[in-house]
């Protein structure tokens, strides 16, 4: 029975991981840009929920649109006024820029909220389903469904709308996209905004389950990195598969091995997948030659 409980916990955590990584994946897949500030954007989303919840008592799940909108705006501006100026340059330029952005966000949140760990406890935090000896808290269940719903919405946006077509075309060939009338730099700004919004909303979800502090940003960036490489770059199903694998593996590792090995496991997975299947489990050749 213990293993079933661990598996269920792993799946529920995996759904959240998928949602937390998908923005990182889309930004990387479309612009070939590794957003080192992704984890800090997640943390920022968590603090937005924290501030609203402690000021007004609004349910943390209902703050999702607010953190999403705030982070979209931040991401859009950052891409439009900063990253677009260096995106044509070398990869190192964008790495340094997003690293700088990460430092800025971390220190800003440290200044505003200190490094103390914060957490949010909704009134229903202790309640849950019990089937036999298996317990599923409502908060974990709620986080899981919101995470999947947000990921699905992003997927529909990417695959069913004109904006999604423009983003896909830009990721395949930005010059050709420009030739058919796509404003490539505008698409970049919107894509970064969407990626940031997904990070922020994932942050709101994380704040319901875990305590958080500005210093955790880097951990989330590394997890997003592992998930994206596991599942495959720029693909929504890939992020879901990668998230589930990481969530389940981490949960089993924390039961079967000593606590310290939990984080080591994700990096062993990373190395293994890079050796065995470098493009990820569901990865496509995203930057394929014609």
């Amino acid at each position: 029975m213990l293993y079933w409980q661990v598996l269920i916990n792993g799946v529920l955590l995996g759904g959240l991981y998928a949602c937390a990584a998908i923005g990182f994946s889309v930004i990387w897949g479309v612009m070939n840009l590794i957003n080192l500030a992704h984890g800090s954007m997640i943390i920022l989303g968590a603090y937005i929920t924290y501030v609203i919840n402690s000021a007004t008592g609004l349910d943390p799940f209902l703050t999702i649109p607010i953190s999403g909108a705030a982070l979209f705006l931040l991401g859009f501006m950052v891409q439009k006024y900063l990253i677009n100026h260096v995106i044509e340059g070398s990869v190192f330029m964008t790495l340094i820029l997003t690293f700088g952005l990460d430092l800025l966000l971390v220190n800003m949140t440290l200044l505003l909220f200190t490094a103390d760990f914060r957490s949010i406890t909704p009134s229903y935090a202790g309640l849950g389903w019990e089937i036999g000896t298996i317990r599923v808290p409502y908060t974990r269940l709620g986080v899981f469904f919101f995470a999947l719903a947000l990921t699905l919405i992003l997927s529909l946006l990417m695959n069913r709308t004109k904006l999604g077509n423009a983003i896909k075309a830009t990721s395949f060939d930005k010059d050709a996209a420009g030739l058919v009338g796509v404003n490539v730099f505008q698409v970049y700004a919107i894509t970064f905004g969407l990626g940031a919004a997904m990070a922020g909303m994932a942050g709101s979800l994380i704040s319901v389950l875990h305590s958080f502090s500005p210093v955790l940003g880097g951990t989330f960036t590394m997890k997003a990195f592992v998930i994206v490489v596991l599942g495959g770059l720029g693909s929504v199903p890939g992020a879901i598969v990668g998230g589930l694998i990481l969530g389940i593996t981490e949960n089993f590792a924390s039961v079967l091995l000593e606590a310290g090995y939990k984080d080591a496991i994700s990096f062993i997975l990373l190395v293994a997948i890079l050796v065995l299947r470098p493009r990820g489990i569901l990865g496509k050749q995203f930057f394929a030659e014609v």
Binding site: K162, N165, A166, K168, A169, F172, D173, D175, A176, A177, L179, V180, G181, V182, K284, F286, A288, E289, V290
Partner: peptide, 19 residues
């Protein structure tokens, strides 16, 4: 040619009408 490699013929043509 610079076609959008992961898209179908129809999707490529429809991208041509993006404007």
């Amino acid at each position: 040619r610079r076609l959008f490699a992961g898209m179908t013929v129809r999707e490529n043509l429809m991208m041509g009408a993006f404007s």
